[in-house]
Amino acid sequence: MSEKLVVDVLTLDAVQCAACQYMFEAISALPENIRQHVEFKEWTIKNPEGINKFLELNGKVLPTIAIKGELIFESIIPTFEELLDALEAKAPEALKAEIAKVREQQG
């Protein structure tokens, strides 16, 4: 497997908070062929690791999706196309090819 694109989802708690739940689901429900090239993780601010990640990324609001260390979607759950665009902008070649396949399938 080639290099994976790192996606961090900063949340209050995806179980407890519906906004966080669906921000996280935007990533976790990506098509399988894309997910295989993405290393994604939820960072809840309810534990020290999550707080450290929030500080490391200079997080401002919850929930937020960060792609390759950059805060991209802050308190806005993206459409599928917006998310694909954002992933593609930072994707390694293998992931770009998978994104292209998904777009082709969607017409």
Binding site: A18, Y22, E25, A29, P78, T79, F80
Partner: peptide
């Protein structure tokens, strides 16, 4: 969102 999942956020635009 509960009924449709995250797709609703694409539906409201597309």
């Amino acid at each position: 969102s509960h009924l449709r999942g995250v797709k609703i956020f694409t539906d409201v635009i597309k």
